[in-house]
Computed example of a mutant assay.
Amino acid sequence: MTQRATVSVRVDPERCCCSGMCVLTAPEVFDQSEEDGSVRLRRPEPPEHLLPAVRQAADLCPSRAIAIVTPGP
């Protein structure tokens, strides 16, 4: 039996404009730095039930600081 590959999330705090949309959309996965407000990743491999919110957060990110990485074939 093969294990299904997991989707992973990557963030770029240097690119982040600190809007906080990611935290509002998927607080289980994203957080903001207390120092500068930039994005921090809480769960780099979120469970499947959180993926719709993660995708929405990536779509809403004005600076495109969130990347969703899907496994290859």
Results as ranks from 00 to 15, higher is better:
1 M>C: 09
3 Q>M: 08
5 A>T: 03
5 A>C: 06
5 A>P: 05
5 A>Y: 05
8 S>Y: 00
9 V>S: 13
9 V>A: 14
10 R>A: 04
11 V>R: 05
11 V>G: 08
12 D>W: 04
13 P>E: 06
14 E>G: 07
15 R>S: 13
17 C>H: 06
18 C>V: 09
21 M>R: 06
22 C>V: 02
22 C>F: 06
23 V>T: 10
23 V>S: 08
23 V>L: 14
25 T>G: 06
26 A>G: 07
26 A>Q: 05
27 P>E: 02
27 P>Y: 00
27 P>W: 00
28 E>T: 01
29 V>G: 01
30 F>E: 10
30 F>S: 10
32 Q>N: 10
32 Q>P: 02
34 E>R: 07
37 G>N: 11
37 G>Y: 04
38 S>M: 09
40 R>N: 08
41 L>E: 04
42 R>I: 01
44 P>D: 15
44 P>F: 09
45 E>C: 08
46 P>L: 05
47 P>V: 10
49 H>Q: 12
50 L>A: 11
50 L>R: 07
50 L>N: 05
50 L>D: 11
50 L>H: 08
51 L>D: 13
53 A>L: 04
53 A>W: 01
54 V>G: 12
54 V>P: 05
55 R>A: 14
55 R>K: 14
55 R>N: 13
58 A>V: 03
59 D>V: 04
59 D>K: 10
60 L>S: 12
60 L>V: 04
62 P>D: 13
64 R>M: 13
64 R>E: 15
64 R>V: 03
68 I>E: 14
68 I>A: 13
69 V>E: 15
69 V>W: 03
71 P>V: 00
72 G>H: 01
73 P>E: 13
